Simulated assay, not measured.
Amino acid sequence: MHFTQNGMKRTWDLLEVHDSVAILLHNTQRDTLVFVKQFRPPVYYGSIPEEDRNDVIDVSKYPPELGITLEMCAGLVDKDKPLEQIAKEEILEECGYEVPLSSLVKIGSYRSGVGTLGSLQTAYYCAVTDDMKVSQGGGVGDEIIDVVEMTLPEVKKYIEQDKIPSPPSFLFAIYWFFVNKTKL
């Protein structure tokens, strides 16, 4: 993008992407939070020192695990449907829970990737129980997603790490949960 700001001509690299939904799942029967783990190529690439970013990466020196993130269940707004419906479908596809639309509580909407994307993400909270679990989840098509459940003390310990392999929206939702849904 080329623009003028304060009389100066500027250029900014950006990407146009779909908006998205993200859902913080709380299994109230077991008092766990349900997340997804997946490989994110940009995270992997960003974990490798610049001098070693060659055509072929030495995976013995830089294992693929460097690109694994822990995230909320999420999906792109790439269908002409209400956001809540897209969130409901993502919960089923990624985590295997069949939830009623009425169980989705909007946390809020915010801009993500503000330096390169600026897309709008809408976060939801959803309480689930074991009887709502109808499949293993894991995504559809070529998605490779692992479903992970963590106790609240495990989540607290995770977010207290020095380097957290999760996006800021994940942290926002966790802090929202600890402030609004529990007293840990």
Rank of each mutant, 00 (worst) to 15 (best):
T129K: 03
T129P: 01
T129W: 03
T129M: 03
D130W: 06
D130V: 01
D130G: 02
D130T: 06
D131N: 07
D131T: 09
D131H: 08
D131I: 04
M132A: 11
M132L: 12
M132Y: 13
K133V: 01
K133C: 05
V134A: 09
V134W: 02
S135L: 07
Q136H: 15
Q136W: 11
Q136E: 14
G137I: 11
G137M: 14
G137P: 14
G138M: 10
G138C: 10
G138F: 11
G139L: 10
G139S: 09
G139T: 13
V140I: 14
V140R: 10
G141Q: 08
G141D: 04
G141S: 06
D142C: 05
D142W: 06
E143F: 12
E143V: 13
E143P: 07
E143W: 15
I144T: 12
I144M: 13
I144G: 04
I145R: 14
D146W: 12
D146E: 12
D146S: 09
D146P: 01
V147I: 15
V147K: 13
V147D: 11
V148A: 06
V148P: 02
V148H: 09
V148S: 05
E149T: 12
E149P: 10
E149A: 09
M150G: 14
T151Y: 09
T151I: 10
L152K: 14
L152P: 14
P153N: 13
P153W: 15
P153Y: 15
P153E: 15
E154A: 12
E154T: 10
E154Q: 15
V155Y: 05
V155M: 04
V155S: 02
V155D: 04
V155P: 02
K156Y: 14
K156L: 13
K156E: 13
K157A: 14
K157P: 03
K157G: 08
I159R: 01
I159N: 00
I159A: 00
E160W: 01
E160F: 05
E160I: 02
E160N: 05
E160K: 03
E160T: 01
E160L: 08
E160H: 03
E160S: 03
Q161N: 10
D162A: 06
D162M: 08
K163I: 03
K163H: 05
K163T: 02
K163M: 02
I164S: 05
I164C: 05
P165F: 01
P165K: 00
P165H: 00
S166A: 04
S166Y: 01
S166N: 01
S166W: 04
P167H: 05
P167K: 00
P167I: 09
P167S: 05
P167T: 13
P168D: 08
P168E: 08
S169M: 05
S169I: 02
S169K: 00
S169N: 06
S169W: 04
F170S: 07
L171N: 07
L171T: 09
F172L: 08
F172Q: 09
A173V: 03
A173G: 05
I174D: 10
I174A: 03
I174P: 09
I174N: 02
Y175I: 12
Y175R: 13
W176D: 15
W176K: 14
W176N: 13
W176E: 14
F177R: 08
F177W: 09
F178T: 00
F178P: 01
F178V: 00
